[in-house]
Design a protein around this nucleic acid. Structure first.
Length: 238
DNA sequence: ACATTAAATTCGA
DNA sequence: TCGAATTTAATGT
């Protein structure tokens, strides 16, 4: 409950700069955009803090403005499974909003992050009236399905370099995560959490990928040089 | 686990 | 408000 109060207290209106980075806002009519921006709220999540379920049921559609979140299952039922990392530009939670359910996963901040929220009622209202917004959401769902299929393949891969490569490639997805661009701010430790490897092993994997000119390692993050090859990365024959 | 290097923060003028 | 000094964070091995 303390968490919820903190989020409430920290909630504020988005800055113009933050609004500019919200991809779907630009697709709306002027009237819709004005209406919606007045309801958008922004708050900060500290490392380890859970963004979802600070309200009881699904009350917001969330977007990552800055930072890095991680989506995972509820560890109470057994093994901890990380579904995906959520970099800047990611918008999520529409599935539960559509069905008016409660969140079935945890979203937790990997580091200090700025998160935007659109109240559930406003989200549903937009869906009812705006065709461009519907197109955005459908496209989003479709792309995410693709991510899920790719994720199944990643799981079959037990080669660490391949896991790092393909998880990284997923984070550079231009449609799902338009805030990322060529340069992804993520530490090797954070990548380790997402992929399920030690920081040391991630470091080795990144070095290998850099040797092959797919990425460049920079302090505090990674730059992609060849996204296609990163996506298709296969471990070297033994 | 440890040594190195980069970045962020503090502090004194 | 500038920049040197110190502390913290990230990286490489």
């Amino acid at each position: 409950m303390a968490v919820r109060l903190q989020l409430r207290e920290r909630a504020r209106s988005p800055t113009p700069r933050e609004l500019a980075d919200i991809p779907w806002l630009g697709m709306l009519s002027d009237a819709d955009r004005l209406d919606v921006t007045s309801h958008l709220v922004v708050s900060t999540a500290e490392p380890g803090e859970r963004v979802c379920r600070f309200g009881r049921a699904s009350t917001f559609w969330f977007g990552v403005i800055d930072g890095m979140l991680k989506m995972s299952n509820d560890a109470a039922g057994g093994a901890q499974i990380t579904f995906t990392g959520l970099p800047p530009g990611a918008w999520f939670g529409e599935g539960t909003l559509l069905k008016r359910e409660v969140y079935r996963y945890n979203i937790e901040a990997l580091r200090r992050s700025t998160v935007a929220g659109l109240p559930s009622a406003v989200f549903n209202h937009l869906l009812d009236r705006s065709i461009p917004f519907n197109r955005f959401v459908v496209n989003q769902l479709n792309e995410r399905l693709g991510q899920f299929i790719a994720a199944r393949e990643i799981d079959r891969q037990n080669h660490p370099d391949a896991r790092v490569a393909r998880n990284l490639a997923a984070l550079f997805h231009p449609v799902l995560y338009p805030g990322v661009g060529q340069w992804l701010r993520i530490t090797q430790q954070e990548l380790g959490y997402l992929v399920g490897l030690s920081r040391q092993r991630v470091n080795q994997a990144l070095s290998a990928l850099q040797r092959d000119q797919m990425i460049r390692i920079e302090y505090g993050g990674v730059r992609v040089l060849d996204l296609d090859r990163l996506r298709q990365y296969a471990p070297p024959e033994t």
